[in-house]
């Protein structure tokens, strides 16, 4: 346990009975996404907004934006199930297709895969039950838009760390 986690957990212990369910002591800073889901989301955010001279989706904390917004105080609670279902499906579908999960694909292969998803090429296939009631292309459209919100919107919602997108546009 590093010092920060220790302090956090002690605060919860001394904080009293209003805490329902003490979080596990992992380094996962998220409330809604598991380690594995967050890792997929990071990779997805970086594919949608790639790092370069300015931070990409991952370093701009787009995943934190998504996690915050699908949580109980967020504006996108209705999409929690979408992420819980489709992030794992994105990995599994990739393994079935390419022999490697999404997070392990090369940048080029990730782009190619997502373009195919966007075009609806995976919408009708035998393994569709992995995607629950969602289609791969509708998931992509939703998350593409929400990644843009996380990257270009106000940092108060969890993303756009240090106003990185504003700096990229010369606004700060």
């Amino acid at each position: 346990m590093d010092r920060r986690s220790f302090l956090k957990v002690s605060a919860i212990w001394t904080g009293g009975a209003w805490i329902v369910g003490v979080p596990t002591l992992s380094a996962n800073p998220y409330r809604e996404l598991t380690d594995s889901e967050a890792e997929i989301m990071d990779a997805l955010a970086d594919a949608i907004i790639p790092p370069g001279e300015f931070a990409g989706g991952k370093d701009a904390r787009v995943t934190r934006f998504i996690d915050q917004q699908i949580g109980r105080y967020g504006y996108l609670q209705h999409d929690k199930e979408l992420y819980k279902t489709c992030l794992p499906a994105l990995n599994k579908n990739s393994r079935d297709r390419f022999g490697a999960v999404f997070t392990e694909l090369s940048e080029d292969r990730k782009e190619e895969y997502l373009k195919a998803i966007e075009a609806g090429e995976y919408n009708n296939q035998p393994t569709n039950s992995d995607w629950g009631s969602y289609t791969p292309s509708s998931f992509f459209n939703t998350t593409r838009n929400q990644c843009m919100m996380g990257f270009y919107g106000s940092p108060i919602h969890g993303g756009n760390k240090d106003y990185v997108s504003y700096r990229m546009l010369g606004l700060y």
Partner: peptide
């Protein structure tokens, strides 16, 4: 989306 989109921005 992607690199081209970010460059456009």
């Amino acid at each position: 989306w992607g690199r081209e989109h970010k460059e456009f921005q």
